[in-house]
C-alpha cells in the first residue's frame, strides 16, 4: 500500500492541485478536468496498439536481427529505419520511451535510438500535415528540413555527451525493464 502511494505520489499531488484549482477558480478547474479527460481519452486510444507492438517486437524479433538492422555497423540502413519508425509513430513523445527501452534491450545503437526519439518528437507525418495546413507550406517544409538536420546533430552530440559507462548502465536498465 505504502509502495503504491509512493509510486503514484506525482499523480496524487497533481490531483490535489486540480482540486485546489477548482476551489480557487471553478471555471479554470472545470477546464482542467475537461482537458484531462480529453488527454486521457487520447492516451487510452493511442497507447494500446503501441504497447502490443512493443510486446510482440520484444518476444518475436531476435536480438541478432535488430542488431543487424539497427545496431553497431548498421550504417545508413539503421538510420533510415530509425527515422521511418519514429515518423510513422502515433501519439505523444512519452510513448516513445518504452519503445526505445526495447530497442536498447535488443542492441540497437544509441545514436539510432536517439534518432528514433527525435523523429518521434518532431517529424511525425500526421503532425506535419497538420502544420502544413495551419501554418503554410513554406513554414512547415522549412521546419521539417531543419528538424531532420537537428535530429542528427542532437543525436550525435548526446551520444558524445554520454560516456560509455553511463551508456552501459542505461542499456542494462532497459533490459531489466521488460
Amino acid at each position: 500500500m505504502k509502495n503504491i502511494i509512493l509510486r503514484y505520489r506525482f499523480f496524487l499531488v497533481m490531483a490535489a492541485v486540480t482540486i485546489g484549482l477548482s476551489i480557487i477558480n471553478p471555471l479554470a478547474g472545470e477546464k482542467a478536468v475537461d482537458m484531462t479527460l480529453f488527454s486521457f481519452k487520447e492516451m487510452i486510444s493511442v497507447l494500446p496498439p503501441i504497447f502490443i507492438l512493443l510486446g510482440l517486437l520484444d518476444v518475436w524479433v531476435p536480438r541478432e536481427t535488430m542488431i543487424r538492422y539497427m545496431g553497431e555497423g548498421s550504417g545508413a540502413k539503421g538510420i533510415l529505419l530509425a527515422i521511418f519508425l519514429g515518423s510513422a509513430a502515433a501519439g505523444p513523445l512519452y510513448g516513445a520511451f518504452p519503445m526505445a527501452a526495447v530497442f536498447m534491450k535488443k542492441g540497437v545503437k544509441f545514436t539510432n535510438v536517439l534518432i528514433f526519439l527525435g523523429a518521434w518528437s518532431t517529424t511525425k507525418i500526421p503532425m506535419f500535415l497538420f502544420e502544413l495546413s495551419a501554418l503554410g507550406a513554406r513554414f512547415a517544409i522549412t521546419r521539417l528540413i531543419a528538424s531532420m538536420a537537428g535530429i542528427f546533430v542532437i543525436a550525435h552530440l548526446v551520444d558524445k555527451a554520454v560516456d560509455k559507462k553511463e551508456k552501459t548502465v542505461v542499456y542494462k536498465n532497459a533490459s531489466e525493464m521488460n
Binding site: 479554470a28 488527454s39 512519452y94
Partner: peptide, 21 residues
C-alpha cells in the same frame, strides 16, 4: 511496460490539464 509508466503518465495527463486551463 504500460504499468511501468502508468503512475507518471497519469500525473502528466493531470498536469497538462491544469496547464491548458
Amino acid at each position: 511496460a504500460l504499468e511501468n509508466m502508468l503512475p507518471q503518465l497519469l500525473g502528466i495527463v493531470l498536469l497538462v490539464g491544469v496547464m491548458l486551463a
